[in-house]
Amino acid sequence: MFSLVTFIPRAIVQSIPLLLGCVGETLNEKSGSLNLGIPGVMYVGAICGVIGSFMYENSGAAFSPVIGLLIPIICCMLGSLMMGLIFCFLTVTLRANQNVTGLAMTTFGVGFGNFFGGSIIKLTGAEVPSIALSATSKAFKATIPFASKAGVVGKLLLSYSFMTYVAIAIAIITHYVLKRTRTGLELRAVGENPATADAAGININRYKYFSICIGCMIAGIGGLYYVLDYASGVWSNDAFGDRGWLAIALVIFSIWRPNWAIWESMLFGGLYILYLYIPTGTNFAVKEIYKMFPYIVTIIVLIAISIKNKHENQPPEALGLPYFREDR
């Protein structure tokens, strides 16, 4: 009954939104910004993409897969960029409290997503019963044709849509940039010790703006992936659920390492759907306990790293603190 070959691909598909959200949040946090608005950003990214492709699909034009892919991706990135800019402007330029700003962004973003998700049909006067972007979703879900015929290996490694590979690539690239490049070194310095970075001639605000905005765009793509790939283009309100928070949990679980997050997001994804594969008989309640695991694991990691107090595993030292040069 339990088959790894069917389980793993589904876990991976589950994991991608988490992974992208996590990579985005990691970028934020590495610059010293605890962005609790990521769940909202993911909603906004998703809905902007949905609006874009909804307009396109209902515009009557002949559907071209390439444009059908590009429009939602661009819309999604613009939407999440806007959210990123709001966060930057408030917390970096105006030095507002990051936690409060983040929570406000999540309130705003989730509302934004649900409002447009629930009202776009009425607002645009389109004559469709619900948002089901089947054509766009088909384009998103396109896989390598022979993958399913290539046996177990093909199914495990090649049966995914291109976005899945893009997501993993983004995680690897982010890891590379953070760990190996000058930009990454300087960015980490900003998040660890802005005064030192400032003295070394690094433009703190520019780094914060870039990393927060790029991080938000990556997270936004995670939201888009969920709707157009995982949910086959069907938008339903609140369906995205607590995945945004799970992404933030994943940042801790991966101890701020995007390359680890790839595997751990699959673990989280697996835990999220494990209940479907465990014979529980009539006891559906257990599945809710399984859904709790990612959070429990995260708490344990959080406590463990604070007890062990190993330097590499700590959150960025200046996380959550605004930087004002004349404060010193």
Partner: peptide, 25 residues
């Protein structure tokens, strides 16, 4: 003015646009 979790070398080259005459991309 040092970043604790960086190595000596990382701290030393932090913020340098050119290193030993070579531009750090």
């Amino acid at each position: 003015k040092l970043v604790n979790i960086f190595s000596a070398a990382q701290n030393i080259i932090l913020g340098m646009e050119t290193d030993q005459g070579v531009k750090n991309s």
